[in-house]
Amino acid sequence: MTQQGTLGVAVIGTGRMGADHVRRINDVISGARVAAVVDIDAERVKAIAGGIEGCAAYTDPAQAMADPGVDAVLIASPGPAHEAALLAAFEQDLPVLCEKPLTPDAASALRVLEAEQKLGHRRVQVGFMRRYDREYLKLKALLASGELGRPLMLHNRHRNASVLPGFTNAMLINDSVVHEMDVTRWLLDQEITAVTVLRPKASGNAPEGLDDPQFVIFETDGGALVDVEINVSCGFGYQVQAEAVCESGTARIGDIHDLLVNTAGRWGGTIAPDFVERFEDAYDRQVQAWVDATRRGEVTGPSTWDGYAAAAVCEAGVRAQAEGHRVEVELIDRPALYGS
């Protein structure tokens, strides 16, 4: 795809995230169009495609990828379907933006990693959108500058007002804390080597059967300690905060106060209701960056290695949670394709 051309994107999965990405490509970003939509619900994709000029509807991802109008793929289907879609994209040598998780477990992520290496070049950007959030980018730049010295600790808070029925303890790690796993690796430029999970007495707001909140601790190969408060039934909104404690100072993000109101003896602002609103700009920036890089013939952003590493840390986290003790992370050596 040349810089001048418009990127034809096949969006696989048209649930909440997929539909939002269709809207984003159609109405928000530049340089791309929705060339195809894919979902097992044939009526849904027909309805979506019918509202977009030149958009085809498919129920089979491989058929969509063979469409001559498709230049790239955005995977937003459920995690268990990602491996097959990624391998199909590799067969067509198509660039991919894959929503997290890369795959649901380390073994399948490793298969994807090995398949991409056989291509001899990167094709996948994983959708860890916090790397595109303006505040996280500022924190990353500050830490990379060395102005505050070596990072010693990283404190994270990750709070949801509530979760849907059926949310499990393992999902606390795989669906929520996975974001802190990725930003820890990215912000500190270190790998996570061990995970410990501690649990206070469950909140009265927690759904039956869910041990919420929990306190997760990471150790890194650079000697840093990282903690995560995961609290998915706090009741008051969606909050993501991080504070780096370094040798020569601290830096904190997540205290967003776009508008402060003083009235009737009180002051305050608003808290985002969910992740879609809180990280809307980050999602926009992520997809635009992917489109721009793809049109230049490049692949940037979180890699298949990052997706695999997150899956490996998740597995250690779920074990630590279930078994009640510290669990070491098992990682292969990083392949040369993904840098040092």
Rank of each mutant, 00 (worst) to 15 (best):
V37Q: 03
Y338G: 09
P80F: 09
A109S: 15
D258P: 10
Y132R: 14
D133W: 10
D212I: 02
N156P: 01
H158E: 13
A264Q: 14
R150L: 10
P95Y: 04
D133M: 01
V228E: 00
H179E: 03
Q214G: 02
P101K: 08
V112I: 12
L225M: 10
V28D: 11
V299E: 10
V240R: 13
Y132F: 15
F275M: 09
M1L: 14
E330N: 08
I253F: 04
P68L: 01
D60H: 06
H325D: 06
A109F: 06
E280H: 13
I48A: 14
D221Q: 09
G5A: 14
D227E: 05
V124L: 13
R295C: 07
L260C: 04
A144L: 03
I52Q: 10
S145M: 10
T263N: 08
S203P: 02
S30F: 13
G317A: 03
V232W: 04
I29E: 01
D227V: 00
H325T: 01
M181A: 14
G301S: 12
K118N: 06
W267V: 10
V73N: 14
I192R: 10
K140I: 03
A161G: 15
D211N: 12
V329N: 05
V37R: 04
Y283S: 07
G166N: 08
E91W: 04
N205Y: 14
L172K: 10
T250R: 15
